[in-house]
Design a protein around this nucleic acid. Structure first.
Length: 205
DNA sequence: ATGACGATTTACT
DNA sequence: GTAAATCGTCATA
């Protein structure tokens, strides 16, 4: 399936969306018309006001996280650690601040430009294997916060629309949310087991 | 007005 | 494994 995702595809809860996004392509079209794209291989669900790891925990609504309260299919981009950006897909109902963080891509189109945007990357697998990395590679920054993925031209999702086979999906705890108490352990991270482009593999125990 | 803090990445021991 | 880089945002005053 190669069609572009529309508004309906982004609706619903964060967890099924996080799983459904695996295998689909994130497409970024630059001002000069060039197309950068990657297959989504890793995501995380953020469940809103109840989720201690989420920016909207407890109903917090600020200038930074305002777009989390927007309609499903809106892009939520924020700056983290003063130097990287993270890209999320807003889902759920209007005023319900749930979202899916895109954590890793397998580069598919525009690899040369991705490499130029990430000169430190030594290999292909270093290009988009993390939320900050993929934003650098696809030139995603706060100017794309609030963009509509369903109808905008700058960034959108296309391709696979059903979830991958369950046997190919690993579900585990999210990364970098140790401050979130019991929510840190909840299995809200998803990745494709056979991908070489995820940010971190689950360590075998 | 000020201080503490990240949904991270990189380089280095 | 540990540490540094770097700054907009937000809670406190």
């Amino acid at each position: 399936m190669t069609g572009r995702w529309t508004k309906e595809h982004f609706g619903g809860a964060a967890e099924p969306l996080a799983e459904r996004l695996l295998g689909a392509s994130l497409v970024r079209v630059l001002a000069d018309g060039s197309r950068l794209a990657g297959r989504i291989v890793e995501t995380e669900a953020y469940l809103g006001v109840m989720d201690r790891a989420a920016h909207a925990f407890g109903g917090r609504r600020t200038a930074r996280n305002e777009t989390m309260y927007a309609a499903a299919g809106t892009s939520y981009v924020y700056l983290i650690y003063g130097m990287y950006h993270c890209f999320n897909v807003v889902c759920g109902e209007l005023d319900e601040p749930t979202a899916v963080l895109i954590r890793a891509l397998e580069p598919v189109e525009g690899l040369v430009q991705m490499q130029q945007a990430r000169p430190r990357a030594r290999r292909q697998r270093d290009l988009c294997s993390g939320p900050g990395k993929l934003c650098q590679a696809l030139r995603i920054d706060r100017s794309l916060d609030g963009a509509c993925l369903a109808s905008g031209e700058a960034i959108y999702v296309e391709g696979a629309q059903g979830p991958p086979a369950a046997s190919r999906v690993v579900r585990c705890a999210r990364i970098g949310v140790d401050y979130a108490g019991s929510w840190a352990a909840r299995p809200l991270r998803y990745y494709l087991h056979d991908s070489d482009h995820v940010s971190k593999k689950l360590r075998p125990s």
